[in-house]
């Protein structure tokens, strides 16, 4: 296999950072929400969609991206944001609703915008996909080799925006890669009950574009297929759809009773945890235990510092609610 060792190391450390970020958030989100769960109470209020288990989709493709490449993500965005290199302090402050946040506290966890690394996400299913089409169109019109990556869930592939966007990107041959993160559920509805085809790769064929399937949440295969897709897009040879089977370890949102799935499902997925698999691969390639430990420690320190930064940041003043409706001076 031809994945450079430094790329495997980057993927491992980034996946570890994402996992630790999400697992920390489970606890932080619970602060102030007991004994009675009130979604609007506590350190971090509002809905919280976490991506523990879905790291391979994010790191496998972001390993090939540069700053100028655009990423759009849906309501479950932390792994995508971290893999794209969104500033972790500013992102966390935004999730905490602080004035130091990416959106000065006006966006929140589902609405993170970091133009420095061209990342955005939003709370409407499939809506980020046309934005990625537009970013890809801008790249094409500017004559740059930039690409746009739209992360969506498998549930979004049944929305009109998905089909309009694939057709548009195909007919204009845009440098777009659609990554369908198939975590098997649209909230509670299993893919088999919502989607007329077994794999969304079949839908790529309907728009005459390349389509690839990544099985079993495998970050290495994701990396290899993404490399092809990104190269194709950079060469101006059009869009690609990649669907990856991934794992949603947690509920749709924190507080989801998950009555719709078997209690044994997650433990059985965790036996095939992608982090453990990449760790084993690193060891197989001769990376020492101590080096792996250093990677983990770096990731933990960065995440802890981000949460610390968010906690110590101030809330915005009420008057700031009136700012940013329109561009100042226009």
């Amino acid at each position: 296999m031809g994945v450079p060792i430094e790329k495997i190391e980057w993927m491992y450390e980034t996946m570890y950072k994402i996992r630790y970020y999400e697992e920390s958030m489970v606890n932080i989100y619970a602060e102030g929400k007991s004994p009675v769960f009130n979604i609007g109470a506590g350190t971090v209020p509002g809905e919280m969609h976490l991506a523990a288990g879905q790291e391979p989709a994010a790191v496998g493709i972001c390993a090939h991206l540069k700053r100028e490449d655009t990423v759009t993500a849906p309501h479950r965005p932390h792994h995508n944001a971290i893999a794209k290199g969104v500033d972790l302090n500013l992102m966390t402050a935004e999730i905490f609703g602080r004035k130091t946040g990416l959106g000065r506290g006006k966006g929140g966890h589902m609405h993170l915008f970091d133009p420095n690394v061209k990342f955005s996400c939003g709370g409407i299913v499939a809506a980020g996909l046309p934005h990625a089409v537009g970013a890809a169109l801008a790249a094409q019109m500017k004559g740059e080799d930039w690409v746009a990556v739209a992360f969506i869930g498998e549930g979004a592939a049944n929305a009109g925006a998905f089909h309009e966007s694939l057709n548009l990107a195909a007919v204009w041959k845009l440098p777009l890669i659609v990554v369908v993160e198939d975590n098997a559920y649209g909230i509670s509805v299993p893919k088999s009950a919502s989607t007329a085809v077994a794999s969304n790769v079949e839908r790529a064929a309907a728009y005459g574009i390349a389509g690839y399937s990544v099985k079993d949440n495998d970050p290495i295969t994701m990396y290899e297929i993404s490399e092809r897709a990104v190269q194709l897009a950079r060469r101006g040879e059009g869009p690609t759809l990649i669907e990856i089977e991934t794992f949603r370890y947690l509920g749709h949102f924190q507080g989801d009773p998950e009555l719709y799935r078997n209690k044994q499902e997650v433990p059985s997925l965790q036996k095939r945890d992608p982090l453990l698999r990449v760790e084993a691969l690193l060891k197989k390639q001769g990376i020492q235990e101590i080096e792996i430990k250093h990677m983990q420690e770096r990731a933990i320190a960065q995440v802890d510092a981000a949460y610390q930064f968010a906690r110590e940041s101030d809330y915005p003043n009420a008057t700031q609610a009136f700012e940013d409706v329109f561009v100042v001076g226009m």
Binding site: T70, T72, P115, K118, S120, A127, L129, P130, H131, A132, V133, G134, A135, A136, L137, A138, A139, M141, K142, A148, G160, A161, E164, S165, N167, L168
Partner: peptide, 15 residues
């Protein structure tokens, strides 16, 4: 939805 969304995406890129 596709092309108005694409206009949004392109505008965010400075078009």
């Amino acid at each position: 939805t596709g092309f108005i969304g694409a206009a949004i995406g392109a505008a965010a890129e400075g078009m």
